[in-house]
Simulated assay, not measured.
Amino acid sequence: MDPIVLAAGTALVSAMATDGWQQVRNATVAWWRGAARADDDAEAVGADLDAVRPQIVTARQEGDEDTEQALIGAWRLRLQQLVRDQPHLAAELRRLVEEELTPALSAGERSRVGSIVMKARASGNARIYQAAGDQHITERATDVER
């Protein structure tokens, strides 16, 4: 599954439980309207979002991680289908995630949404150190063979 779809599904469902939900909902419906090219599809999505919101709020209150993950999965599948049918929408979906969905989330929620891609290429005697968090290297120059 496309990484932006994974992030979007998580961010969308997570945003449903926030105080800024109405703004996120409106932005999502507007994006879908442009993506689907049909107003009735976007309005159906809006109605579906409204129907799902109480489920995620209740799941959060009850600590029901399974329900939350199921809802995230359902929206990921729906978004994946749209992006699969119209690959150019991936860039627009990234904008929606970065400009509308993620800002509505708390710092802790934001860390669940992002994805990290690291690439490296080494040759000769080169060394590569990569980390998605803290990294401590205790190697001394005399420890490195030349």
Rank of each mutant, 00 (worst) to 15 (best):
R78G: 15
I56N: 08
I72V: 14
R33Q: 05
R76S: 12
D64S: 15
G73E: 10
E65F: 07
V29R: 12
N26C: 04
G46D: 03
R78T: 08
A47T: 15
T67I: 01
R37C: 06
D39E: 13
R76G: 09
Q23T: 14
R37G: 00
R53I: 02
G46C: 12
Q23M: 07
L82F: 00
Q55A: 07
R37P: 00
L93S: 00
G46F: 14
N26Y: 07
T58W: 03
H88N: 12
R84I: 11
A70L: 10
R78W: 15
D39R: 01
V83T: 14
L82K: 04
G34H: 14
A91V: 08
W75S: 06
R25M: 07
Q80Y: 14
E65T: 09
A90C: 05
A38F: 10
Q81W: 14
A47V: 14
I72M: 00
I72P: 09
A36I: 11
V45C: 07
A35P: 05
R78C: 10
D40Q: 10
G34K: 15
E43G: 07
D40V: 13
D41V: 07
A74F: 12
L71M: 11
D39Q: 12
R76L: 02
V83K: 03
R95I: 13
A74M: 01
A47E: 03
V24P: 00
D64T: 15
N26E: 12
R33Y: 09
R33H: 06
Q81H: 13
L82W: 05
A30S: 12
N26M: 01
Q86P: 14
R33A: 02
V52C: 11
A36D: 06
I72A: 04
R94I: 08
